[in-house]
Amino acid sequence: MRLKFLIPLSVFALLLVLLGVGLKLDPREVPSPFIGKPAPPFALPTVHAAAQTLSSGEFQGQVSLLNVWASWCVSCRQEHPLLLQLSKTGLVPIYGLNYKDERPAALAWLDRFGDPYRASAFDADGKTGIDWGVYGVPETFVIDRKGIIRYKFTGPLTEEALEKKLLPLVRTLQEEAS
């Protein structure tokens, strides 16, 4: 009988815990449904040469990163030095997906800030981006040897994310199959 008066308080306590946990979550982040699934196929011309094609077949047989970028994207500039650094170490090949950009602008951007990509696919109309579930440039995918997407990072990469999440994952994936 008395217990029923405790119901509001207990429900509220639960709510408090929930809100407390909520403070640590990012409500904007949308998890990718592609984790654990094969990379959506594409075959696009590269930024550097319209005649050359970069296709999702490239991801077979090696662990790789796919970084979605654009010259109009301000926060891409923020993560760019990290990508350059990473490409210099040669730990993992980085591919680019140049999303909804114009070729001269993209080329000028790479010229100015440096080109960390083994190759960049030129996705002018953004269809491939949509196929990959891109919603906020920059985004970075980790793809394993079998061409399966294992992880996605949305937003500009940080040193912390790179050191704690991406690189350890890349290493285990590389060891996994060798």
Binding site: V30, I130, W132
Partner: peptide, 8 residues
């Protein structure tokens, strides 16, 4: 859309 972006 759900295939690409999930139930979100």
């Amino acid at each position: 859309l759900v295939d690409r972006y999930g139930d979100f």
